[in-house]
Design a protein around this nucleic acid. Structure first.
Lengths: 159, 159
DNA sequence: TAGCTGGGTTGCTGTTGGCAACTTAGCCAG
DNA sequence: CTGGCTAAGTTGCCAACAGCAACCCAGCTA
């Protein structure tokens, strides 16, 4: 590793370079980094759970969706659960697992970035605190309770 | 749109479905959703700025990296800036634009998710508040200052 | 003048994405 | 009990993109 400044435990602002296959970002992207994965998760979060609904809303080819869903089930982000409607045979829909549900902050930050940098109007969707109706954002806070200015954000290598 | 519950202004917990090309998540993924984009941004954030360094650290093919960098410059996430070292000709390195820098929350949430769900040990990197040394996380807070429990997070359609 | 180095481009090949057509399982109507 | 309908796929084919390796190019140094 060509990382002179990145000694263990040292706080640095740059040149914190982790071997790529140990990096959690790289690993996360290995699971949800493919073309439709996060959009599928987004739709399932939003209540679109069935194959045909997903295909129609996403405009994705059936075989691609089929593969993506199988991979997401496989990766433990979705569960394939049976359901049956009146006068129809048993079918399957897709539900989030806890791991899948935990992706909501990723979706939220992506959405915030898109709202900010790619918008052509007001944000089409906002997150809201059901308790009080206020808009919700993700803010960086340190374990001692300080609000953290992004400029004061450092990286520390673990052991 | 097949979205009976999603009337404008109505707060709902699911079936909030936005037309795909107006969705900020879809747009964001259109820019940073391709295979190496976020990893390149991550490396540039971490101080890896030059073509050869990026290529070596990411293990990506030159032509692919070349294309990705051009696209990221094009999309306004990176700037191609000249530099010159003693005894070398002028070369170029890549620096984050404000829009690129604003991706840090996306990287942070991805990292947190990977740390939580794909880890095989302690987190290799942590974010730290340079003021006090405390670990930093992104927490959902509403505009009225309440900490928001993820279970109390709703979606609201904009106009 | 020849060689080195960073930062690419070009050509070839293998994998993935996308479309369209076909399949399958159960329900229902005649 | 035959034929049609629907959701949820599967299969086949083609085009686009990723990956690898080889080559290029501009300026520096020897």
């Amino acid at each position: 590793m060509s990382n002179p400044a990145g000694r263990v435990g040292r706080v640095v602002r740059q040149n914190v370079v982790v071997d790529n296959d140990r990096c959690s970002i790289a690993r996360a992207l290995g699971v949800v980094g493919e073309r439709w994965s996060l959009l599928v998760v987004r739709d399932v979060v939003n209540g679109v759970r069935r194959f045909e609904e997903l295909r129609e809303h996403l405009g994705v080819a059936r075989n691609v969706l089929s593969r993506r869903l199988a991979e997401l089930v496989d990766a433990g982000l979705l569960d394939r659960v049976a359901y049956r409607e009146f006068g129809s045979r048993e079918r399957y829909e897709y539900a989030l697992t806890p791991a899948g549900r935990d992706l909501w902050p990723v979706l939220m930050t992506l959405m915030a970035w898109g709202d900010r940098h790619l918008a052509d109007g007001p944000p089409p969707v906002e997150h809201e605190h059901l308790g009080c109706g206020g808009k919700v954002a993700l803010v960086p806070v340190c374990e001692h309770g300080h609000d953290v200015d992004p400029a004061d954000l450092g990286l520390r290598l673990g052991r």
